[in-house]
Design a protein around this nucleic acid. Structure first.
Lengths: 344, 344
DNA sequence: CCTAGGGCTTAGCACGTGCCAATCGATTGT
DNA sequence: ACAATCGATTGGCACGTGCTAAGCCCTAGG
């Protein structure tokens, strides 16, 4: 037996263009030409090459191709695997990028994989652009990337002048949400949220602004929690502990809204009979029949479109100055909101 | 001093080893040697090279490295981005693989990205092994992969003799779950599930077997639904439409269990007062305070360990025959289960 | 002064593919 | 019949890195 590691000899080797060429009885270059769909090869050659490739199960070596071409046509995507909105954007970006001939290198953030590590990996893959959800602004790799390629900052405001920013227009979103509730007769409209990154405080401030501009400044009622289900549950308990419930509660996310609804339900408080509840994101969780949350829709398609547009614009014209895009928020009205109870 | 002033160069291109070598005043090969940490370079050279690399922000080109080396040390991971258990396994695999010097190429399944497309992409990246959640057995690319490299089939049973299989031991899991409920005095134990892939029918069959072996064959009560929240909600409505509710309902997944709980709650049916409900997976959704589901834990770490073990074993010995590993399921008892109501 | 030897460094090939330029073979125009 | 043309095919270099073998310089020994 060979005492040396048998690992460096794979059981079977993946076929290369050379193997295909040999089997088809043509040159390696012709194989390349045929597989790229270029003009020139005769029908006869084309068929023989395609047949040989199919029989051998040839798959082009992505590393070799990327190395040879000056362009990798890869977009790096950094996101949190736990956040459903981010995952949906990543999925959609994968599909839409393929339509314009781009691949996507996924870089999920975890406890052990920081912004720095993820972006470093993506740079080593020679991505041509980056899309990052809420990155750590202090990461050296990110700073380097900002000077090298288009970077799209997703999700929250940023003071970074070299990055495109794509975020949902929270101002308009919360405004139409408050208007919707006011139209239903609500005045005691509480807000559950305010914690978390830049977005949390932003949304809370926007809530206060929307209330104030509608003459409801004295009804502002904010329960400081974060974005998760458990945060919503906490907020619900805080509100239930009071003498009087508000007639409506705006959850800072769908998860938060679901936590509010579930906790109210288990306490026997009817939604929307006693309290109207809203979410924010319009994700799958909002559409579940037992939540059925009225929610601000953060449009995945609009976000992905704006991201790709920004990347393409700055790839074709590197001198183009970065932009901030606030995608329009729309309102999905469902059964978790209804007319305010009269005897508040 | 250096006649060039490369600090403010336009930085349009990522630096290569050649650039680093030029800046450090050494050859490209020496740069390679230093960055690989190989023996030979003097301390002086080492420092100069490292300094130059840092100043230029050098990142090795992953494509070039992978192309040159016979081994890519990459594991391909196919999963559904919507399924939290699968995402958690993928995340954990990413971290654990890094510990043993392997990278992970992520291949998320979506509506437009089938098993075939995803595995083809992974093969083009020259992954050395595949881990696939519930793949389509008919995919040609998958069949090719099975003959070329270690493939770990995750999540469900498989008739494929060339693949390792890693799945949770549903038999034992449902057995201890039924035992738990029986110990609480339940006899009318319904099951919501049975649809979806191989796992769905499997779990349903296991439920029936567990009930039968405990002398409860006449109490078997299965509501045929799938794994999602909405499926749980549907099952709850079906059960509520009956004359008499069971005293316990086993949801085939945490999502299903959450749908059951929420729908019961909104209908004013107390959980666990009137009906005990369980989940399956012990994911984040089970731990939410308003669900607090008793659930079978599918252990992420055990799954990832078994996957990596199988891959390493078959990489070091390709002749090694595939194995099936059923990771042990454990029970997380929470407040969604309690003693059966007496006046059923 | 010459040679042997050891510590550092570099020359050169290879990986698989894309693409430009060159070559081949056959047909057409005069 | 000969050159020109054109379609089909191939030669050859390049991408950035890893690795083996060869080269350089300097000191010690004769």
């Amino acid at each position: 037996m060979d005492p040396h590691a048998p690992e460096d000899r794979p059981a079977t080797r993946m076929p290369t263009m050379r193997d295909v060429a040999q089997r088809a009885g043509v040159s390696r270059q012709l194989v390349s030409l045929v597989l790229r769909g270029g003009p020139g090869p005769s029908l006869e050659s084309r068929n023989r090459v395609l047949a040989a490739a199919a029989e051998l199960g040839f798959r082009p070596n992505a590393s070799a191709r990327l190395l040879r071409q000056s362009r990798t046509r890869l977009i790096g995507m950094m996101f949190t695997a736990l956040n459903s909105f981010e995952v949906r954007v990543a999925e959609r970006l994968l599909e839409r990028a393929a339509d314009i001939g781009f691949g996507v290198a996924l870089g999920p953030i975890t406890d052990r994989r920081t912004t720095e590590i993820v972006i470093r990996e993506l740079l080593e893959q020679r991505v041509e652009a980056l899309a990052c959800f809420n990155p750590d602004p202090g990461s050296p790799a990110l700073r380097q990337a900002l000077g090298l390629m288009p970077v799209v900052w997703l999700g929250e405001r940023s003071a970074e002048p070299r990055a495109d920013v794509v975020r949902t227009d929270d101002d308009a979103g919360l405004a139409i949400l408050v208007d919707h509730l006011v139209a239903l007769g609500h005045r005691d409209i509480a807000f559950a949220g305010g914690l978390g990154g830049t977005v949390g405080p932003d949304r809370a401030a926007t809530y206060r602004a929307a209330m104030t501009s509608r003459g409801l400044a004295d009804r502002i009622d904010q329960v400081l929690v974060g974005f998760g289900e458990e945060d919503g549950a906490t907020a619900a308990r805080v509100l239930m502990a009071r003498v009087r419930l508000p007639t409506a509660v705006i959850g800072c996310s769908d998860h938060c809204g679901a936590g509010l609804v579930a906790t109210f339900a288990r306490a026997g408080i009817s939604v929307p009979g006693t309290v109207s509840v809203t979410g924010y994101d319009d994700s799958d969780i909002a559409t579940l029949s037992y939540n059925d949350l009225t929610a601000i829709r953060q449009d995945v398609d609009l976000t992905v479109d704006a991201t790709l547009d920004g990347i393409q614009r700055r790839l074709s014209n590197p001198a183009s100055s970065p932009r901030e895009v606030a995608t329009q928020a729309t309102l999905s009205i469902r059964s978790s909101t209804a007319r305010a109870r009269t005897n508040a």
